[in-house]
Amino acid sequence: MYIGIDAGASATKTVVINKEGEIVSYSIVPSGINFKVSSEKALGKALKISDLSLKDILYTVSTGYGRALVNAEATSSEIMCVTRGVHKLFPSVRTIIDVGGQDSKAIRIDENGRVLNFVMNDKCAAGTGRFLEVMSNILGKSINELGILHFKSSKPTKISSTCTVFAESEVISHISKGSEIEDVIAGLHEAIAERIYNMSSRIGFEKDVAFTGGVAKNQGFVDALSKKVGLTPTLPEEPQTICALGAALAAIKKHGESASHSNLRSN
């Protein structure tokens, strides 16, 4: 079995695949403050689901924010892992928009799954899952509720601040002025969609477009971004584990290479 661990800023995901690249099991646990602990927990959980043990593991690749801190034979960047994961499941996808806990990225790929170009959010987590977490806290609604309430809005409130802290004040002021909570929620989804759309526009939206990452589980956000981009996105069944799937696919490749080839060159 091959393991991919995506130690993300917010959640740690583990995917177990067989040598054919088929998903055997997966798990998602909160990252907390210790990636080593959370990754072991996620791995244990995924192994237990598929009735496997550590000795069944041939190779592990880690990715994500905490990739260097977890137990794995090799690491791979999030960009490559998301790309591998999406290309495996949906070979017709040419643009990926991945929104995670702390970063958002847009990737253009070709028909062979090669990365042509990519952009990532810079220095600021305003267009990411963390933004929605902060808002869900002050609104007293869970992330799941945000997705549901979004569709009850008839007139989304315009949230103009891009900074999370200022947007928080703006939301409080809208609520205190009597705005409907579902309108504010839809407004927040539009604000984050707008930000991600602007970033992704730099590389364009060639069809098919896939949405991945934990935030793609929020239907409200998916609705806002789909409208902004103007097309129906390809959505994986479990968007949050795509990057870990890509890491597991990298594990197959690296396991094959490790015997015969070293990554480094000597002069």
Binding site: T83, R114, M120
Partner: peptide
Amino acid sequence: DYENPAQEIGRIKTRVEAFIESISG
């Protein structure tokens, strides 16, 4: 893009790694 490499090295490294990996395939 960067302002203070020492403080931003994690962010820079993620991009550089992804770029290099996308070339090596």
